[in-house]
Amino acid sequence: MHSINIKGLCFSYGKNNVLNNLDLEIKENGVYCLIGKNGSGKTTLLKILIKFLPHKNGSISINEKDLTLFTLKEISQTIGFLESEMPNIPLSIEEIISWGNFPFEKADRQIQDVVNELHLENMKDKNFLSLSTGERKRVLLGRIFAQSPDIVLIDEPFNFLDPKYKIEVSLLLKKLGEKSIVFIATHDIEAVQFVSEKVFVLSNGKIQLEDTPEKVIKSSFINKAFDIPKSLRKKFEQFYHIDANS
């Protein structure tokens, strides 16, 4: 079984403390969401997990192996990562999906399966830039399918997606979650409710709350985590159909 285990993680950009003694544990496959307001350190945490940023205090282990012992190559074989910004390059879709094989140095491994699985057969020679935002996201997820890592880290997967693609992407994430730990940083509360089993709320550099999406959203803490002022609370509950009394 796959796992992520973080204990006492601290991180700061200069004097600005972003993560402060953060603990987090995931032991089973599935889709997990990390929510928090802008600037709360969600992306920072993901970057630390792929060793793009160094961590000094605290310990991180992936599949019960200390992160510091991973080589860059082992990380790329174990963790699939999608950043929030989409690449802006006119390459073919097949080329981009094939990047999933890059860490394994085997050409054409699984590419055809992925293309079939994601129904990309008739567009695999197309230019990535000629696709719509939703289709691009699907292709990038296809790259993760080709990589088929133990851990999938995705930053803001639902940004700029229309409802159709939001559902489609969510279903793909759930599919990934059957074989891997899918850990998503987002603030899309609707999608969180649909896609995830467990939600972690990041605030003041710590995981302040972890629970099922329903319970997290109904908790009073959500207001604090997203900095929602009293005057807007009613509207917030209406907006997300939260029945505060139940």
């Binding site: 792929i50 793009f52 860059l72 990380i75 790329s76 963790i79 390059i89 860490p103």
Partner: peptide, 18 residues
């Protein structure tokens, strides 16, 4: 292939083991 991946961004290139 590395150059192709590198074109997308430093972060993606790093995450794919470059």
């Amino acid at each position: 292939k590395k150059m192709n991946i590198y074109l997308s961004s430093d972060l993606t290139a790093h995450s794919l083991g470059i």
